[in-house]
Design a protein around this nucleic acid. Structure first.
Lengths: 412, 412
DNA sequence: GGCTATTTGTTCAGTGGTTGAATTATTTGG
DNA sequence: CCAAATAATTCAACCACTGAACAAATAGCC
């Protein structure tokens, strides 16, 4: 009763070219210096003839450009370096969070060409109001992109909550959202782009997921598998396995806030006891540090904690050590389960990493069986504020890179 | 600094046929009645002409056969049904466990054509002795396979421990193994098969991983993502995500025995406190049930527990409830993290499932945020004893199904 | 029994895309 | 200024899929 995964689909004649477009474009994107056609041929195993043909398609489609200052090599006819176009498709990244809105535009090469963050406490506002303000931000980002000659290939919106496939936000506790049909509310403006490859123009995803994606593609060569922990009011995690984001059966992976850390601990709103969130959630840390009363916006609170910790404030240091230990217990379980080699401290944890890292590492080395053979890396996130917006925008352009044929065949 | 996953390799002319061989073969394997060439064409989107050509290759290579009793359809020329060959390639599955050795042969269609289990306490034996006995079992299985006209395409060996890529068993605590170079010790006999596609003839893998693979392909249509928990002396888990086994960065995923369940609990040999293993490990359950002294072999102990629980023995029922709750706490954390929709109780847990399931479900519904929207299924494993051996043998033949071109091109 | 409708499987010219070798283009070094 | 070297393009050949026409085999119907 064998039932192997039936291969997705048959390969028709034209799929060959589609695939090779992606291969060549991927190589150009991954190279650290503009590769020549000949170099691509050597690297991919294709003939120079084929590479030339493929590159011609990419040039004509505006996905690739020839680097102006020809990179010198030695004797022989000089090669013409190929780079990703910076005036082609781009991705729009949006983010709604508890205390800010963000919009950004990322081009094919991964450069952030536009970035706006608008600070505001959004908990009192209704979803419609918030999304109207976001649409405003998005409109400005789009105008900016158009001015720079970029064509938006789609948008991604990050929200701190559970989202289903259709973009319905089932639950975003810290925003007070429940069953908010985001695409319908946000589509009030002019349509972003026609569907490409069946992907809707606006993808809504969890903030932790998109931040993890951003982290994956930031930096020189992101590790293949890692856990990206975002410490905000809640605690979310994005899981990257073998270089791609793991979303789970329904797209709701990464709920680590309620891993039991000390079952004899304080009760949690989830019904359990001693959940991670009750030790390492932002409110918990603030309370333990003696700053519970002050109703600061989230990022200010984090900055304040970092300052006080830097100044050696004992209560704050104790609170962070406590939080780090709890985080370490939970993370160690995840690392044992998934055999990850890297843990990234993101979101609100990034600025607190100097104090959180040691206890996290300590718990990992105590509890992870295989840590002795190959150590687990724990590091702060490379991306800063609104990492999820940048990650989301990046995921849009990366769709184009992964299937350039879809972009090339788009209706004018 | 975008760095998209460079597509694996370029597609050359012949890859097209290679791919379509896999597509068609996969469809034949997945169908529940022998499909016709015309049906395959309709299903895959290829032309009937192409399908005919592809099928001809598969028939010539002995991977597929025409079903003798032509399945009747209605008017028109009768179709000739295609089935997987049962006299073609087969996989050899081997297993070393604490109290038994096993060997089995699985054919292309997934049928178990040979199965031997040899009970023996292997803890006192040296790795070399144990592997010599296993080689003996394997030789008999191979002779049996040859008698039935099967050609072995490779072998997989399951061990209860941590294995690296080269087949070195780094640590198998319950066997007392450390750094055992299994392939070298087992290769004493005649070589199994030449490398196909760069895969060594003998693959060594973790028992929980292979059992999970077996579970994935047993039953009508295994769920795409699930956790397979094996309760033996230790507790291991195999993780299947989107229909394929997740092995982790170094192949050591699935260590769930040391997830903290009750940090105020008894100390564990890992250094932590209140680990899952101290509540739901086999020894822990036996001790809690008042059977700690009896030094029974593992499977006997499990059977005994099931009998006593069936008889309503209060101490045993209490012990199982306790173990189930602990297991539920740990599993809930995993389900939250990975958003799985199914949990399979395998290994020693399978016969105890009637008593473990309720507390596990209770903890899941308490702790898994999304359980309210779509319930998590908890069920006993479909495969019985030596599930890992069967799963391993299945993984061998499934390699052939996934890349038939490699098999067809093998050196005669 | 013979005819038609129907469906399966095969044959064959046509086409898209890659291959491999030859050719052209453009530079460095002597 | 020419030879050597490397890059890119051109072109006939070839491979695998496509589409349509055709042969094969059966059921239903008179």
């Amino acid at each position: 009763m064998t039932r192997p995964d039936a291969p997705p689909g048959a390969v028709r004649q034209g799929s060959l070219r589609e695939w090779n477009l992606a291969v060549v474009l991927g190589r150009i994107a991954a190279a650290d210096r503009p590769p020549s056609r000949a170099g691509l041929a050597a690297g991919t195993g294709l003939t120079r003839a084929t590479v030339s043909a493929v590159v011609e398609d990419l040039l004509a489609g505006g996905l690739v450009a020839e680097a102006e200052p020809t990179p010198r090599t030695g004797a022989g006819r000089p090669s013409r370096g190929l780079v990703l176009a910076t005036d082609g498709p781009a991705g729009l990244g949006l983010e709604v969070n508890v205390d800010y809105l963000a919009a950004c535009v990322v081009d094919l090469a991964g450069r952030v060409r536009h970035h706006t963050v608008l600070r505001a406490d959004l908990r009192p506002a209704s979803p419609a109001e918030t999304l109207a303000r976001l649409a405003d931000l998005a409109a400005r980002a789009r105008a900016d992109a158009a001015r720079e000659g970029l064509t938006l290939a789609g948008a991604a919106l990050a929200v701190p909550g559970l989202v289903d496939d259709a973009g319905l936000v089932r639950l975003a506790p810290n925003l007070g959202w429940r069953d908010v049909p985001v695409p319908a509310l946000l589509a009030a403006g002019p349509p972003l782009t026609a569907h490409v490859d069946g992907v809707p123009p606006l993808v809504v995803d969890n903030e932790a997921n998109l931040a993890a994606l951003g982290e994956l593609h930031a930096g020189p060569a992101g590790p293949a598998s890692f856990l990206h922990v975002s410490g905000e009011v809640g605690i979310g995690a994005g899981i990257v396995l073998d270089g791609s984001l793991f979303r789970g059966a329904r797209g709701w992976s990464g709920e680590i806030g309620h891993i039991p850390v000390r079952p004899d601990g304080p009760p949690c709103r989830c019904g359990g006891r001693g959940c991670l969130e009750t030790y390492a959630g932002q409110e918990a840390i603030l309370a333990a540090a003696g700053l519970g009363g002050a109703d600061l916006p989230a990022d200010t609170a984090t900055t304040r904690l970092a300052e006080l910790a830097g100044g050696g404030e004992p209560a704050v240091l104790r609170a962070l050590a406590e939080a780090g230990t709890a985080l370490g217990v939970a993370v160690a379980g995840v690392v044992n389960l998934l055999d990850l080699d890297t843990v990234v401290l993101g979101g609100g944890y990034a600025p607190l990493a100097p104090w959180l890292r040691p206890p996290v590492l300590a718990e990992i080395s105590r509890r992870v069986l295989t840590a002795a053979w190959s150590p687990v890396i724990v590091r702060p996130a490379a991306l800063g504020t609104a990492a999820a917006a940048v990650g989301g925008a990046g995921s849009v352009v990366r769709r184009v890179l992964a299937r350039p044929a879809g972009w090339l065949a788009r209706p004018a």
